[in-house]
Design a protein around this nucleic acid. Sequence first.
DNA 1: GAGATTTCAGGACATATGTCCTTTTCAAAT
DNA 2: ATTTGAAAAGGACATATGTCCTGAAATCTC
Lengths: 233, 233
Amino acid sequence: MIQSANHQQLKLYLKKFAIEDVFPSKLIGDLSLCYYEQGEHLCMQGDNACELFIIVKGKVKVFTTSSEGNTLILSFKTPLELIGDIEYVQKIDIINTVEAVSPLTVVRIPYKALRAHCENHPPFLKFMLGIITQKFYVKSDFLSFNLMHSVDVRLASYLLSHSFDEQHSLVTGIHSTESLKDAANLIGTSYRHLNRVLLKFIQEGLVERNSKSIVIKDWQGLKNIAGHSLYEK
Amino acid sequence: MIQSANHQQLKLYLKKFAIEDVFPSKLIGDLSLCYYEQGEHLCMQGDNACELFIIVKGKVKVFTTSSEGNTLILSFKTPLELIGDIEYVQKIDIINTVEAVSPLTVVRIPYKALRAHCENHPPFLKFMLGIITQKFYVKSDFLSFNLMHSVDVRLASYLLSHSFDEQHSLVTGIHSTESLKDAANLIGTSYRHLNRVLLKFIQEGLVERNSKSIVIKDWQGLKNIAGHSLYEK
DNA sequence: GAGATTTCAGGACATATGTCCTTTTCAAAT
DNA sequence: ATTTGAAAAGGACATATGTCCTGAAATCTC
């Protein structure tokens, strides 16, 4: 992780997301801009929480590891999103591990500064409320979706929503290796089973697979399986 | 539903939960106390949202119905809890249906009054943040738990946590009829399968079943299956 | 470039879970 | 008490999913 002293850049980001007024001016000096490389961890499950992160560029995955050693990905997050918000309010340890899955830029703010200057600052409180209620809504949807639908449906939905990712459009490049494992962990199934369902999709002509990627051939067909596509956000 | 004009009683509730200072005094007149009978609905999925409810006595179940007609119970809620908070912040329609499962007392506040007087009122914003982050945390846990564990584990956990409910202590009375169906819908499985697992528990001597209730015989045995008991809150 | 090593896809089997239907239980009505 | 109908429990079967393992493919090392 590299910490930047470039306050100009930081302010550009705040402006980009229209959150300049969220923090009182006396707190601006406590903000810093940080860059993480792919694979680096922002925080680890169980650690003491002491800073709030605002994701302003790149993508992270949020996951938890059970006592049995299983990994479950709870979500992928892209700007504008907060890490450490729940922990700040509830005053608890880090709940989930967060890892950069692309080069990442975040604004970092120590809890200490927040408690000193934002505890009763309505713009900040409203900002937090907006983000957290959104998160809750998405999570609630995600829960229902997972509990009510089979892996087929979930995978179809996953493929659809992750094809619109930053990079390509229709010709999606979902890397076989890591990201398929991630997909399994996000969907909440085993890698083995995901492969099985994928094979079925291939046999049905819905997708094609080559050594490096998975390509969607029949958009509508997948949509019919997915019903209402989730995992979108 | 019966609306009460008893402002004295209302204030007692606010005091009981130490939330007298959450609302500015000019808004107090907009609060009202409402009583619901078991089975009544506070709000229905898809309806226009216009009031915030604070549950101060009794218990509700929050559930959603899929387009295929399946019901999934997302949670049971007891005081102190909010209904309509996400909708208020996000300005969206009612997400889930909420039904009283016991005689219920709530404090009702029209959104209109909140927007007029609480939009920038830090005590209110902080109150909302506290409740919503808590909800998020519980839901996140619930999601992981459901996605990572089998129905056996989930049922064991359910039985354990729902035995400490208001009424009895060890000798739990989980009514066979409705509440077993509710259990299935909460766990996210079919009634059929829940019955199957229950039978297994009975054969293993973990629980006993008579015409009206299910009694836990082997507390520790269930705990061993459940691992860390969820569904607690 | 050939062997060694890791990674990945798929086979075989066991188990978990869903669906549909039949049997059983319980309680209301007569 | 008998009948009758609703509700709950369980049987049978099909399908979904997990686990373990093997063979194939890719990558690395020298």
